[in-house]
Design a protein around this nucleic acid. Structure first.
Length: 1071
RNA sequence: GGGCCUGUAGCUCAGGUGGUUAGAGCGCGGUCCUGAUAAGACCGAGGCCUCUGGUUCGAGUCCAGACAGGCCCA
């Protein structure tokens, strides 16, 4: 006996029961251990941060991460899954700052770095239980007992080792980088934070004269002449940040744009010359244009600094350079794009490399000096006693005054535009060049590209598209952060000689410091207290203050999760590279990149072979789900109602993984009804009847019917498709194939086989039906195990484990099904597809004629397309006649007697052959005698249309009905029904109607399927005659041990109905 | 401003290598079937296949451009 199955499934309940079962019997561990000698399937878990509650978008990634290791395990692979947590970084610090009410680095340091970091450490696992609960509930099998944690000393030490390798290869350097900086908080902001704080700002807009040194020459003769004259010649420059002018070291022009030499009058009333873009003359100065020349003619000219610094800079400054974009699309054959705009300003751009990203890039390319005239608090320093110590925005008016005094201010206005402010404290941000540590990834760009070419990306376009482009435009990785909660950078600076050194292990630190550091927490501030002896001069060297970008940590995961190379060497080798990783598309510049970058720099190998890149989950309105937008759907709202399998199935099959997808509980519900319930009911049907019959699996059935062989062909074909698709990391098409199979199993196989299960004789055909359905259900459960692990387990436990104690303890310990080609009878598959099609057309014809299926009909006419199909119809005709409730199937050759023809050209054939003439033939075919043409074609001849010989293969002949017959037609197939009804047919229809009524009454009365009943019928004379004539049939169908006319007895269940306008009262009673 | 992706029925999605009648599910209206089914079948309404050009005898499909949305980066 099987356990009885309630057809009303409660999946969430069932799932929690299964979870208990897995835990009690340690199934996950067993599933891995069982394959310990199998080939490795390596999965890397991209570590989540547990300082926020998980949302549906996290569930998405986790269910895809779960599927493949489960699948590979069932395929015999050893698929261990080590969990991990990402714990460092600015987001963690910001959370803690908020809690503690700290708003700047000064605050943090006053609070105490040790305590601050302790709070950070505590906060990262704040929601770890939520994560574990969610992970457990969705059935994501991952080993969380021994996860890697990025703040562990062992993890940090591996990161040190990596940095040391890079250091030794000369890939680490220190340089300036311009970042948005909040002068009040004393920290840089990420681009995301900057985006939060844009607002309108009212800034100065000033035009300033940069006086060219006299006597210089230019290819532009007019300019040379002007410079030789006694009048001053100035470049006219526009800026909205006067405070950056003291840091000016160059001006940039567009080398191919036209520039003008304009006659003007200076502040002192004396004549002067100005230079600016010709396109801007009208808007800015007006005045007489003496000459125009390309910007290139200005290159190299030198001018007097506005605010000469105390000491001469090392590199030549105050000259005109080309305003070419120095980075950006680095495709060699593409010319650099100029950044100098001709839409506003003067076409001459002031460059202060200390305070602008482009400025700094150009500065590097042009070997310009970098002058700082503002400190990190945003206060001017070392320029002029009048504004030194002033905040930059307060210094602006004073600087403008000074320019005016010197006669170099041309014009001053106000300018309203969008400007970034600190999202926390509303202080205007300044762009500020700060020293950062860089990894020279650009030195390994070719290797990065080469290694990327070895990775399979799903979807494929990411490889050459988003990710490939990112790699092609690679810039060096600024990996240092002037923060607290992170992996400390193990670089040491000597107090005495200024030499840098990098350490690669705790042991090295012990040796160089001469201290026992076994119990040292490697975080700040503890590690900062350890000084080492300088290798070059023996002086004291201290660690630099920065910590690593948290992305460096996660990219180190293939190495650091094992504390390689300090231990687990063998494990590391076995688990490198990963066969499979899976994350959201937002990780292209995140984890996908840092993993590849670090493994390329260390080993010149990719560390993952296959990667599924998931699209984003959007809310009902199509917007990204994110905490800041407050539109995150709580996964529990779905898990508690529809269940984990429903959610999983929806996520796998609704859309390809790479697509962005909208998410709503309704869509999950649909997925549940469409698929899970269909399967569940098929399963419940099987168990109900198998238990009634006492059927048990075991013996091989002798004779399988066509229907059985057909469904097994479908099953094995499905196994084949699913396996093939999963091997290509495509769970969507794999799942859809299973869904299609279950639909056919339920709505064709079971539907067609139902009577075989009812028949009371325990004959061979029935045994075959049971065995076949059983095999389909058990195999489907195994196929589904990686997708819907709960339902698969439930079905397996009841169908297999209750019968066979020696079977594997869980479906997840089974082997994945393997398709048996011998079962895949392609002809049979096609044949049944034809039968289904004919039945569909037959139903359509019935509907058109308004003749319900319960009414038997005498003849069904079918016009197949080929002789082969005619044979099929003869062989499988019973399927059709039964399904359509007709007495006879008549194959029609010459459909002309029933139908009129319509002839359509087959363009696929005629197009290539006739070219343009095809349209004339198409027109001609509309006018020929169709019946005649069809006869000719049936005889193998051709008909001449518009001068071309047209054969049977060139056209599709369809037919439309004639009076007397109701027909439906599709794609050349025609099915018609004869609509005439004889009294016999009518009576039989009424008998069926009565059976249907009694069956419905049995259900309404709450009888069990196998209950025997007594049936008493009071009816009009005509219906009574029908009951009498079909008494045996009606009694047999309804399990009536007695059936006859009369009045209802007490305790009987009674209903009154009308059939064809006549009254019938039926009473049933259980015996 | 740059890169990538996506635009097909009210909603969610299919539509190798171009073929003239663009499909499915949900939802809607109707009919039917059913002693497994919360299911299923059939009919119907519902489509400028985002738009504009081009290539072609023929374009949802190929090309170019535009528009809209999404993401990433400036």
């Amino acid at each position: 006996m099987f356990r009885d199955v309630n057809s009303r499934a409660k999946f969430p309940e069932l799932e929690t029961r299964i979870l208990d079962f897995w835990k009690q019997h340690d199934i996950f561990a067993k599933s891995v251990a069982q394959r310990r000698d199998g080939p490795e399937f390596v999965f890397y878990e991209g570590p989540p941060t547990a300082n926020g509650r998980p949302g549906v978008h996290h569930v998405l990634a986790r269910v895809f991460k779960d599927l493949f290791p489960r699948y590979k395990t069932m395929k015999g692979y050893r698929a261990e899954r080590k969990g991990g947590w990402d714990t460092h970084g600015l987001p963690v610090e910001l959370e803690v700052e908020k809690e503690l009410g700290l708003t700047s680095k000064r605050d943090i340091e006053a609070f105490g770095v040790a305590e601050f970091n302790a709070r950070c450490k505590e906060s990262v696992f704040r929601y770890v239980q939520d994560w574990e609960k969610m992970t457990d509930r969705i059935g994501f099998w991952i080993d969380m007992t021994d996860p890697y944690v990025t703040f562990h000393n062992s993890y940090i030490e591996s990161c040190w080792w990596i940095l040391k390798q890079l250091w030794d290869s000369g890939l680490i350097y220190r340089d300036y980088k311009v970042t948005p900086h909040c002068p009040r908080c004393g920290t840089s902001l990420s681009s995301h934070e900057v985006a939060l704080g844009y607002d309108e700002a009212d800034d100065p807009s000033v035009y300033v004269r940069f006086r060219l040194l006299p006597g210089q020459t230019s290819p532009a003769a007019a300019l040379t002449d002007a410079l030789a004259s006694d009048r001053p010649v100035s470049l006219l420059v526009w800026t909205t940040t006067p405070w950056t002018l003291p840091a000016n070291v160059a001006t940039a022009v567009n080398r191919s744009a036209a520039y003008a030499l304009v006659e003007s009058v200076g502040a002192d009333g004396q004549p002067e010359y100005l230079v600016l873009a010709a396109a801007r003359v009208e808007a800015v100065t007006g005045g007489r244009v003496l000459a125009t020349f390309p910007g290139a003619d200005l290159l190299g000219l030198r001018y007097a600094p506005l605010f000469p610094p105390a000491s001469e800079p090392d590199q030549p400054a105050w000259r005109v350079v080309a305003g070419d974009m120095v980075s950006g699309p680095a495709l060699d054959d593409e010319p650099a794009k100029p950044f100098v705009s001709l839409d506003d300003g003067t076409g001459i751009v002031h460059l202060a490399p200390a305070y602008g990203a482009i400025d700094l890039e150009v500065g590097r390319a042009e070997n310009l000096p970098l002058i700082h005239t503002v400190d990190l608090k945003g206060e001017v320093t070392g320029v002029d006693p009048a504004f030194d110590g002033r905040f930059v925005k307060d210094a602006d008016p004073l600087i403008i005054d000074r320019l005016r005094e010197r006669g170099v201010l041309y014009r001053s206005e106000r300018y309203r535009h969008r400007y970034p402010f600190c999202w926390r404290c509303s202080t205007p941000l300044i762009y500020y060049a700060k020293a950062s540590w860089y990894i020279r990834t650009t030195a390994r760009k070719a290797e990065l590209l080469k290694n990327n070419s070895q990775i399979n990306w799903y979807p494929e376009h990411i490889k050459e598209g988003r990710f490939g482009n990112w790699l092609a435009n690679n810039i060096d990785w600024a990996f240092s952060r002037e923060r607290y909660w992170g992996t400390p950078i193990p670089i040491y600076l000597c107090d005495s000689c200024g030499a840098y050194d990098c350490l690669g292990s705790l042991r090295e630190l012990e040796e160089r410091s001469g201290r026992d550091l076994k119990d040292l927490d490697l975080h700040r501030p503890y590690v900062d207290e350890v000084t080492i002896a300088c290798a070059s001069c023996g002086g004291t060297a201290r660690r630099v203050p920065e910590v690593c970008d948290a992305w460096f940590d996660s990219g180190a995961m293939p190495v650091a999760q094992w504390h390689y190379p300090f231990e687990n060497e063998e494990t590391f080798r076995k688990k490198f590279p990963a066969d499979f990783i899976c994350e959201g598309i937002d990780q292209t510049r995140g984890w996908f990149y840092t993993l590849l970058a670090e493994s390329t720099l260390l080993f010149d190998e990719p560390c993952y072979r296959n990667v599924i890149c998931l699209g984003l989950i959007l809310d009902g309105k199509g917007e990204k789900m994110s905490k800041s937008r407050g539109n995150v759907v709580d996964p529990w709202s779905v898990l508690n109602v529809q269940g984990a399998d429903a959610l999983r199935w929806y996520l796998y099959t609704a859309a390809p993984p790479g697509n962005a997808r909208r998410f709503s509980a309704e869509l999950v519900d649909e997925s549940l009804r469409k698929f899970l319930l269909t399967l569940w009911n098929t399963y419940a049907f099987f168990v109900t009847y198998a238990n009634l019959d006492g059927w048990t699996p075991g013996s091989e059935p002798g004779q399988r019917s066509d229907l059985d062989r057909w469904v097994l062909a479908e099953l094995h074909r499905t196994v084949q498709t699913v396996t093939e698709r999963l091997d290509h990391y495509d769970p969507t098409d794999a799942g859809r194939a299973i869904e299609a199979f279950v639909d056919r199993l339920s709505n064709w196989y079971v539907r067609r086989s139902r009577r075989r299960f009812w028949k009371s004789e325990n004959d061979a055909d029935k045994a075959a039906a049971y065995a076949t359905l059983y095999e389909c259900l058990v195999t489907t459960a195994k196929l589904l195990a990686p997708f819907t692990p709960f339902l698969a387990e439930e079905v397996y436990q009841n169908l297999v484990r209750t019968q066979d104690a020696s079977a594997p303890e869980s479906v997840h310990l089974c082997d994945y099904p393997v398709a048996d080609e011998r079962w895949i009878d392609r002809r049979l598959l096609d044949d049944v597809a034809l039968v289904m099609r004919i039945v569909g057309l037959g139903r359509a014809a019935r509907a058109k004629a308004n003749l319900k299926v319960r009414q038997p009909l005498s003849v069904l006419y079918v016009r197949p397309k080929t002789v082969d199909e005619e044979a099929i119809l003869r062989r499988l005709g019973t399927q059709i006649t039964e399904e359509l409730n007709v007495k006879r199937l008549v194959v029609v050759h010459d459909a002309g007697e029933l139908f009129e023809y319509r002839i359509r050209p087959t363009f696929q054939v005629l197009g290539p052959r006739l070219g343009k003439a095809v349209q004339a033939v198409a027109k001609g075919l509309e006018e020929i005698d169709a019946a005649h043409a069809v006869q000719v074609w049936q005889g193998g001849g051709t008909v001449t249309v518009a001068g071309h010989a047209i054969g049977a293969g060139d056209v599709v002949v369809t037919a439309v009905q004639r009076p007397g017959v109701v027909a439906a037609e599709e794609d050349g197939y025609v099915v018609g029904i004869a609509t005439d009804l004889t009294p016999d047919l009518i009576a039989e229809g009424q008998a069926r109607e009565i059976v249907h009524l009694i069956q419905t009454m049995r259900r309404n009365a709450g009888f069990e399927i196998a209950d025997r009943i007594e049936t008493v019928i009071a009816a009009s004379p005509a219906l009574a005659a029908v009951v009498d004539r079909f008494a045996e049939y009606i009694a047999g169908e309804t399990l009536s041990v007695q059936l006859g006319p009369g009045e209802a007895t007490d305790g009987a269940y009674r209903e009154t109905h009308t059939i064809d306008g006549e009254t019938i009262t039926i009473a049933v009673r259980r015996v």
